[in-house]
Amino acid sequence: METLTLLALSFDALLNLSLLYLAWILLNCEDLLKAIVLFVAFGLLMALAWVRLDAPDVALAEAAIGAGLTGALLLTALAKLRVIETNKGTTQQLKQDSENFQTLHYMTPLALLLVAIGLGYVVFSMPPISAGLSNDVATNMGNSGVSHSVTAVLLNFRGYDTLLEMFVLLVSLLGVWSFGSTTSQHETTPGPVLDTLTRRLVPVLILVAAYLLWVGAHAPGGAFQAGSVLAAAGVLLLLMGWRPGGYLSTLPFRLILVAGPGLFAITAALLYLLKGQLLAFPVEYAGIIIFALETTATLSIAVILAALFLSEPPHSDKEHI
């Protein structure tokens, strides 16, 4: 038993130190591509850390969104940036921001060190045992309609946060679209490996997403994780060179985009009218309502994330303008 604890402790220490080390390297390394690859690795290590901290839901979300999707976004952005830089004849190098205020070079690390020490002290000054809201969650689980506590918090207890959060996603997509299309299309033909990979992977990913969604009610998983896995399938298709073209501007597609947040908001409004309380799910129907909300949310999240990856405004927008 003791060896096991020791092993776990040393694993924790190793994981922690490598997290910090990776963060330092990825932020300070010369090459941006390397930095991004390191960032993806960092994300995966973070996912490990979440597992160690008994947070499998977060681990899934981190692996899919934090490492996977963000990494893909960063890599495409870098590729596009390189194209722009080649076109404009500019080069990028590791440049420090503070050329004309040299004294700050000494002040900044000092101030940050103070911040780190202070925060560290605060963390240690926290009481060693604090139940937080876990007791409240446990008491009310029976009325939440689901048996998995994270889903209960996300969709029921603090469903209002999630409602607004869906709108955050939507706003960011609208923002990305409002800036107009980015630079010249930079098309590459996918290699045979990617091609085969996609053919095999896309159906698997769709299945995984469906499973995650379904399992979310009683085990780790749920709308965000499923949505991001589904988005990954979309990203693979996009990498393959598949372009939605005119679909993006059609009404059905737009409907899918807004289905998640829209249904959430409408449900909230209806429940207010029926029960006099915002987002108060009737206990007997809570499970079904949450599942319906999650399903539409999954679709919307997947499409929004994939559209974010594409980052091109729908074509017909140009016709409007």
Partner: peptide, 11 residues
């Protein structure tokens, strides 16, 4: 563990 922070982090 307390799951409320987990939900917050997913958000």
């Amino acid at each position: 563990p307390d799951v409320v922070p987990h939900a917050m982090v997913i958000t």
